[in-house]
């Protein structure tokens, strides 16, 4: 075997063993022990309850106006990251939830989108739905818990 061939074999086998070994290693871990970039890929692997409790941020206005706020108001464009932000803020206690609520309310005021023009409050709520019924038009929640409610900043509101 030439030196070149020996080096090639070493490079090929060492690189492959390292990368494949690292990639497959999570198979030995508990499946929920997820990470990045080495993952157990546990997404979609377990059954979810049909009654779903979901947290959301709502814009509230006159005459019963109510609109779920898009992820960009809560964190960034990622829906799942926005949900985690809501969950963790509420779990961290009232002060943390209020701080997030006020930050969302400021964004509502700053962005001044026409469809939210009548919004004067923001609320972070958990609503329970029957998932399949909800997706087929039964939008009424089975239950609702309001975690925190805050005002859209009045000065900015006037400026719109």
């Amino acid at each position: 075997m030439s030196v070149t061939t020996a080096r090639l074999r070493l490079h090929a086998y060492a690189t492959s063993a390292l990368l494949l070994g690292a990639t497959l290693y999570p198979a030995l871990l508990p499946p929920r022990d997820d990470g990045f970039p080495l993952s157990t890929y546990p997404m979609f692997a377990t059954e979810k309850p049909t009654r779903v409790a979901v947290m959301s941020a709502l814009a509230l206005g006159d005459g019963g106006f109510e609109r779920a706020l898009a992820p960009g108001y809560i964190a960034n464009a990622e829906a799942m990251q926005a949900l985690q932000t809501l969950k963790k803020s509420v779990a961290a206690g009232r002060r943390s939830a209020r701080a997030l609520c006020e930050r969302i309310a400021e964004r509502v005021a700053e962005r001044a989108e026409p469809e939210l023009a009548s919004a004067h409050h923001v609320a972070i709520v958990t609503q329970e739905h029957d998932a399949i019924a909800y997706l087929n038009g039964a939008e009424q929640a089975l239950s609702r818990e309001v975690h925190v409610r805050c005002k859209v900043p009045p000065t900015l509101e006037v400026g719109r």
């Binding site: 979609f44 692997a45 377990t46 059954e47 979810k48 309850p49 049909t50 779903v52 979901v54 947290m55 959301s56 941020a57 609109r67 779920a68 706020l69 898009a70 992820p71 809560i74 829906a79 799942m80 926005a82 949900l83 809501l86 609503q127 739905h129 998932a131 399949i132 909800y134 997706l135």
Partner: peptide
């Protein structure tokens, strides 16, 4: 298939709740 069905329903409801697609 029930796991997948519940996952799709659960995922859609959560997205709808945060005004996402």
């Amino acid at each position: 298939g029930e796991v997948l069905r519940s996952t799709i329903a659960h995922d859609a409801v959560r997205k709808a709740a945060v005004g996402s697609v």
